[in-house]
């Protein structure tokens, strides 16, 4: 699971307030090369919750992401490379996505998060 995907997901357990973002507990993280496409990053940027990306990257030990970003940085190739790497190339293979409120753990296995809920959670 890429951090881009992580940025789009939230815990859908019924009746909780604080669903986003998932806390990541990683036991295996890989790097998978992706085509570097600055335009793609510029398109993605306004869609992202930056603090969630930053926190996720931090929790996986991915360094170099600034705490806050501004539009003009999207022309800076140095920044874009770091952004690209964190957003697309870092892949959570094994671990858990943890609901920030309930602490419910959703397993991630072979890169696939299982986000099915129990009957009493919906």
């Amino acid at each position: 699971m890429k951090l881009l995907t992580h940025n789009m997901l939230e815990c859908r357990i019924k009746g909780i307030e604080n669903r986003y973002p998932f806390v990541i507990e990683a036991s295996q993280v890989d790097t998978v090369e992706q085509d570097f496409d600055p335009d793609f990053l510029r398109h993605m940027y306004p869609r992202l919750e930056w603090p969630a990306l930053k926190a996720a990257a931090d929790s996986l030990g991915v360094t170099g992401l600034p705490t806050s970003v501004s539009e003009d940085m999207l022309e800076d190739e140095e920044f874009l490379k770091v952004f690209h790497h964190a957003l697309l190339e870092v892949v959570l293979i094994e671990g858990f996505l943890v609901c920030p409120e309930s602490g419910r753990k959703f397993p991630v296995s072979k890169g696939i998060p299982n986000l099915l809920l129990n009957e009493d959670e919906v």
Binding site: L9, Q34, P113, N114, L115
Partner: peptide, 23 residues
């Protein structure tokens, strides 16, 4: 060939894990 820009989750179509208005 680089990896595809996609991800897969196990999820139920009645309770999708995506944020509101994210797609």
């Amino acid at each position: 060939a680089a990896s595809l820009r996609a991800d897969v989750a196990v999820a139920d179509g009645f309770v999708l894990p995506m944020r509101d208005s994210s797609c």
